[in-house]
Each structure stands twice: as structure tokens, then as C-alpha cells.
Design a protein around this nucleic acid. Structure first.
Lengths: 223, 223
DNA sequence: CGATTTTTTAACCATTCCTTAACTACTTTC
DNA sequence: GAAAGTAGTTAAGGAATGGTTAAAAAATCG
């Protein structure tokens, strides 16, 4: 879940925002002054900052200048163009004028979080205690890394892409030899066997189930 | 210089925007209909799209849904909250209501371009005892400078950009020879070998791990 | 242009991986 | 229950990839 820091000294507005955000749901952190905000930014893992400009302690503009890593959405009653422009140029990512509609606030929050997410797309595949990290080209089981060869990795990836779903032998054979038609079921058997052996070294739990005459799938969570 | 695509059918507004942008200066591409816009998006390298929603041909909303790679700033006379929210949720990055101040437009453009830039900011890259200083174009290991050739530096930079992450052989080959298609894996082997040799002169620790059949990555911190 | 540095080519060996094949065990079919 | 088919394991040879070296080719620099 995403964490949003709300920096706003007016209690009514603060609580209203907090309520809306928590309904979404987001995790909300609260700051009622600029200094408090900076402290939290140091300490906590924050995905987005909602920032009022007129603050006790440190001014909002100062925070904008200092924070470079986290997207900032400025909420302010200041409507003058100069104010808007300056704070945007200082480093804010968006500017919403009070009063605002909560729907627009939520939409603009989503835009910021979406952009942030796009930077680190390529997601991990997980099943039970197994995690396949695409970027690292690495599979972890119970936190330990398991060394799989290229084809073993490809097979596991295929299985992890759709756990519970049966992957046919032909699908897997296509993986092994992209265009060689002399694919061999025998070969596949050996690969599966080797994979199971490597998994067994880490945990007794079975991961790959064979479906007679069809192919393979990962064991169901429950059964 | 950054290229901005202006999609707007009203000639007066279009020309006004174009004039303002070119003064900055940005390179401006023009589209007067949705279909024309899509064509240009396919063909040209564009950094930002300014998009009017009410267009002949394809509707602006459709363009927002289709374009995922380029930031979109929507300019529209539509002021209803639903319209704003919908188009933001569809994928637009910002929304500005007509009429607008050119200062604010420019500021919001800069925000979008800045975010784009931040993804590839210039910072020192570090991994274990190695520091790559982009500005100096120099790599340090245990405080000592290591002399790497141009391609060796490019390879190390690619690896350091995302430690633990696998960089495929093809990615590295693209680096070596930007457009020569006669890239050679053999060549890459030699480069890697030479890099390792230079590192070994400073420390016994292994830095580059090969991922069989895929490429290379930096060794994990722990294992 | 000649001297130096860098990149590519090529040959060779080492290592890892994939397939083959033989054997065993289990399922299904008749 | 025997025969035929499918699954699982193991070990060994061969194929593919990785690593090193040295020399030729290309690029850089004064």
C-alpha cells in the first residue's frame, strides 16, 4: 500500500483529506508544520507528499526546494499565477487550488503514483515462498537464491506466470527449442527432474505437480 | 532541444501556443486532428504532447488511452470535474483549463519534462567499493582510479546503473556499436575479460558475474 | 604521417548445459 | 494381470557458451 504524507496545519482540511485518502485506501502520515514534515520525510518511506504552502515553522516552498526524491502535490489557497509558477519551477509536481473536489485530488494523486510506478515496472512473480525477479533473472526460495539454468528458469517462469493453471508439455517444449521441431519429451522430463531436485535442497514442499498426459502446474495453495 | 507536439484544431489558439513554445525555445510539431497526431506520434521522437480534447477525427480521450510512453498535458475548455478526473485516470499527466496563463502552461510543461529527465539524472553510481563519477567520466575502486577505455566505461556504467540486474549481451552490444550491425559477442568477451583484469589488479573481489546464455550482472552484495 | 591506444579477430581451452539413453516405477487399457 | 504408455531418475557424451591470450586492424593523437 502507498504511503502519503499530508502536510497541512488547518485541522479541518487535514482531517477531511485524511479521511478521503484512508478510504481509498492509502496509508496516511500527518504533519502539521514544515519542520515536522521534514522529520518524517527523513525517517519514513513516503510515496507522495500533499503539501500546503502556508505553514508554521518552515515554509512550504522550502520543503519543495529540498525534497527531490518524492513527488509533491501542492494544495494551496494561493491563486496567483506567480505563486503557482514559482512553486512548480521549484520542484513541485502538481498544484491544486483550494477549494478542490476530492475526486480531482484523488485523480491527480493517482497520476503521480502511476508515474512513479512506471519507473520500476517489470514485476516479480511469486508463488508460495518462491519469488522470480525478472530484472535480476534470479529465483529466490525462502530468501535463498537458487541457481537455475536458462531453460530451467524459462520453465519456472512459465509456470509462475499462471500458477494453478496447467502448462502443456508442448508449450514448454516450444520454450526449450524455439524452432527446432525435434523437441524431445525426454529432455523436458530431465529438466523438470533437475528443477525439483534443486527445490528439494531448500524445502521439502513440492512445487511442481504433473498432470498426467498433459503437462505440469504448480501445486494449489491449499490442497 | 525538446520536441513538443501541439494537438489543437483552433488555429488561433494553436498559433498562440506555438509562438510561446518556440520562444522558449522548444521544437514544435503541429497536428490539427486526432489522426494526424497519432501519425506523428508513430513517426517522430516526441518528448511531450499538448492535447486539446475536442478534436476532429479521433477524440482526444482516445489518444490519451493509446499513448503510454509520452507525457500528455491536456488543454481543454471542459471544466467539469468528471471530465478532468476521467482523462487523468485514463493516462493524462496534467490538465489545464482554458483559458490559461502562458506562464502556468510553461511551468507545467517544465514539470513534465523535468520528471522525464529525472529518470536519467546524472549522479554518481556506486556499488561496493566502486564509484563511477559521471561528471569526471572516471571510475574509482577503493579510492584508486582505474583507467577504463571508452567501451569499458560504457559497459561498467550500464552494469552500475542497476546493480543485481542482468544486462543482456545484446544490450551491451548495442552500447559498443551504436549502429554497426556486425556486433560481435567475441568482442564483448574480450572487453569483459579486460575489465576483470583491471579490477583484479586492485582487489581480489569479483565484481562481474556472468549469467549463462543471457548476459552479465554485478555480484550480489551477500552471496 | 608515425606512434600509441583501443577495438576486433581468431584460436584455444575450460566450463556449463542440454540431450540422449537406459533403467525403474507408476497408470491406464484391455 | 499383462501390455502399453507415461513419468521420474541417473549418468555420460556432445554441444554450446564463457574466458584467456596474442596478434592484426582500426582509431586516436600529436
Amino acid at each position: 500500500m502507498k504511503t502519503i504524507l499530508v502536510v497541512e496545519d488547518n485541522m479541518d482540511i487535514h482531517n477531511l483529506i485524511k479521511e478521503v485518502l484512508e478510504k481509498e485506501p492509502y496509508t496516511v502520515l500527518d504533519a502539521y508544520s514544515g519542520t515536522e514534515a521534514l522529520m518524517l520525510i527523513e525517517k519514513e518511506k513516503i510515496d507522495l507528499i500533499l503539501l500546503d504552502l502556508m505553514l508554521p515553522g518552515l515554509k512550504g516552498e522550502e520543503i519543495v526546494k529540498r525534497v527531490k526524491e518524492i513527488p509533491i502535490l501542492v494544495l494551496s489557497a494561493k491563486t496567483s499565477i506567480e505563486d503557482k509558477v514559482n512553486v512548480l519551477l521549484d520542484g513541485a509536481n502538481d498544484y491544486l487550488t483550494k477549494p478542490f473536489h476530492t475526486e480531482e485530488l484523488l485523480a491527480r494523486i493517482k497520476v503521480q503514483l502511476r508515474m512513479d510506478k512506471e519507473k520500476r515496472k517489470k514485476k516479480d512473480l511469486t508463488y508460495k515462498e518462491m519469488v522470480l525477479k525478472e530484472k535480476e533473472h534470479q529465483i529466490y526460495l525462502r530468501g535463498q537464491t537458487i541457481h537455475f539454468t536458462k531453460t530451467e528458469y524459462a520453465i519456472m517462469k512459465q509456470l509462475l506466470l499462471a500458477p494453478k493453471q496447467v502448462v502443456t508439455k508442448n508449450q514448454l517444449l516450444d520454450l526449450i527449442s524455439e524452432d527446432t521441431l525435434d523437441c524431445d519429451e525426454n529432455s523436458l522430463k530431465v529438466h523438470i527432474s533437475n528443477i525439483r531436485k534443486k527445490i528439494k535442497k531448500v524445502t521439502e514442499e513440492e512445487y511442481i505437480e504433473s498432470v498426467w498426459g498433459i503437462g505440469f502446474k504448480l501445486y494449489d495453495e491449499e490442497s
